[in-house]
Write a protein that binds this DNA or RNA. Structure first.
Lengths: 344, 344
DNA sequence: TTGTATGCGTTATCAT
DNA sequence: ATGATAACGCATACAA
């Protein structure tokens, strides 16, 4: 059993617990002699400092929390990896939590982190409450607690929390331009849930891109999903039955794209020749698909790093500069000439 | 700023901090009257208990740690998700850590968890030290600290730690049987690193399955990778240049499979007709591939749940029953008749 | 440079 | 059922 405290170490080293503490935390001045003795004793006894006691006293934990909305979405696990590595380099541990696209789970994790007095929070926020359209009580509690927090990927504009996000306007402009050049006119959009800022941004950018390319925006060509695979499948079926027979489609995230592609495969729709597909998020599954799916993606490593940097600024009570990353369009074989149709 | 402690709550409620504590932690008997007052005051002041102080005193954290070897591998993020959900149901938080297939990172995370006095550990262990073939010092320290720990997925046989693992013998038996029926004789194996027990188990089961199907085992048909994509790519090139011209291949995990499939695609090798492929781990990318890749997989949700249950047994100082999950073979279009060859 | 003493926020003990 | 008080393990102000 582990009951070895700093007192035991001090005793074994023949010094006071204060000296032992000073040696082990490496701060104030200590003599070479005591350093040697204390370090030997600590190693000998297998001393593991109690982080609870330490940070209870020093009011810092050297730990940040990262809340993502879906661990199983490779997009977010990439982001998590980037954040973790960057935080590690800055000497901080990262607690990764999963909201599961659910506000209640988000709040539970945030409560646990608040209770554990993490030094800061990096959050992919869930949306506002459906009923009263306000941020969750927990969000407000965090803010009034003064715990440093930044948003990453998504944001809640009404909250004035520094955010690191991405802009897909340019990429979508390129993408739609390419589709138009190939002869597509009816382009559908399988979007995410309106409560996610990224979903709204992508939808808006889609409409803007149509406009910029002198194509008509048609609300009937927008399907509202929820960023999960099942809703992508629903969207795929919706598209197959659509009276306007769209020849191209943009899909707002990878899980939805996977759900949709599965349906189209089963329905015998040939992606590329019969239906041009562009998906947000460049994950393995997009590249393994035959033909490879054209994607719009961002540099998640950079976003993760930027989030940590922004958080550090807040922790040092500086105002971080708002960061926006520009998405990239990658053209691939899933785009092809629009098939001849009787439609517009 | 958040400086509201239980004392503030007690003061506002007009009771002692002891009573406030009793109400808020829900244990001992309290009067309906004080319960009401304390809860009101706590809510009012936005009281968030300090978990550090709490567990410093109570020597429990209601928190377990889960160490996986690669967050970005969907296999492990599925496992993480299952563990987290099950732990949540049991009232425990989960700290997820990432070893990045690296012993040093593993040990760093374990040290942090030990220092934070988690109630228990669920670990996908990295292998033994390359030089002295012994478990890392940190592993030994954990064991001698008496912190409850179970291994999941992989194990270290020399350590006598309860483990939850999978057996792929049956599934590989079926898989190889199917390949033989299709006329394959030279079947290659792209394996994982010998330090991972799962890699050894899969390799052994592969050899056994050849034997059981009256096929010859040939060490030259085994390629040693490291479970990462790049080594899968190397393995794919190795296979293309192999003198025996294998017509079928088993790949030990999803990242390696993705690396390999990418190489074969670029080399113009038609998976299925020209090369039959079976991959461990059923992830999206395997199903999106054209043709869909036959897989051998286990029920990760069940494994995750079993790991939590086993850990709870250890925490209650019971010996958990060793658990072994049976892998499933899923036949798919990536298997086809062996092409005519001049080889054996 | 080192030791003594105090406090971080909470819960357990021992009274009442 | 409740209150006063000590204690958890560590870091720091102060004194020496």
């Amino acid at each position: 059993m582990n009951a070895v405290t700093i007192k035991d170490v001090a005793l074994a080293a023949g010094v006071s617990s204060a000296t032992a503490s000073r040696v082990l935390s490496g701060h104030s001045a200590t003599s070479a002699d005591s350093r040697e003795k204390v370090e030997a004793a600590a190693k000998n006894l297998g001393f593991v400092p109690n982080a609870q006691a330490r940070s209870l006293r020093s009011t810092k934990t050297d730990t940040i929390a990262l809340l993502i909305s879906d661990v199983r979405n490779p997009y977010f696990s990439d982001l998590a990896h980037a954040v973790e590595q960057q935080a590690l380099a800055a000497g901080m541990m990262t607690f990764i939590g999963n909201a599961n696209e659910d506000t209640a789970q988000q709040d539970q994790f945030l409560a646990a982190m608040l209770s554990r007095r993490v030094d800061g929070l990096i959050v992919v926020p869930q949306g506002l409450d459906e009923e009263d359209e306000r941020p969750s009580e927990m969000m407000q509690r965090i803010i009034s607690s003064g715990t440093p927090m930044v948003f990453v990927d998504r944001t809640l504009p009404e909250l004035n929390v520094p955010s690191v996000s991405a802009s897909s306007s340019e990429a979508l402009g390129e993408a739609i331009g390419e589709l138009k050049k190939l002869g597509h006119r009816n382009i559908a959009f399988l979007g995410g849930p309106a409560h996610a800022s990224t979903a709204r941004e992508r939808h808006r950018a889609f409409d803007d891109a149509l406009l910029a390319n002198a194509l008509e925006s048609n609300a009937n060509l927008h399907f509202a999903g929820d960023f999960q695979a099942e809703s992508g499948a629903d969207g795929a079926r919706w598209l197959l039955n659509h009276p306007l027979k769209p020849t191209a489609v943009i899909i707002a995230d990878a899980p939805m794209a996977i759900g949709a592609l599965t349906v189209w495969r089963e329905a015998g729709v040939r992606v590329g020749p019969e239906l041009s597909v562009i998906a947000f998020d460049e994950v393995d599954a997009m590249l393994m698909h035959h033909p490879p799916i054209a994607t719009i993606s961002h540099d998640l490593r950079a976003m993760g790093r930027a989030a940590v940097t922004a958080l550090q600024a807040v922790m040092g009570s500086n105002e971080p500069e708002p960061q926006e990353f520009i998405s990239q369009f990658a053209n691939r074989a899933s785009l092809a000439q629009a098939p001849e149709t009787t439609g517009a």
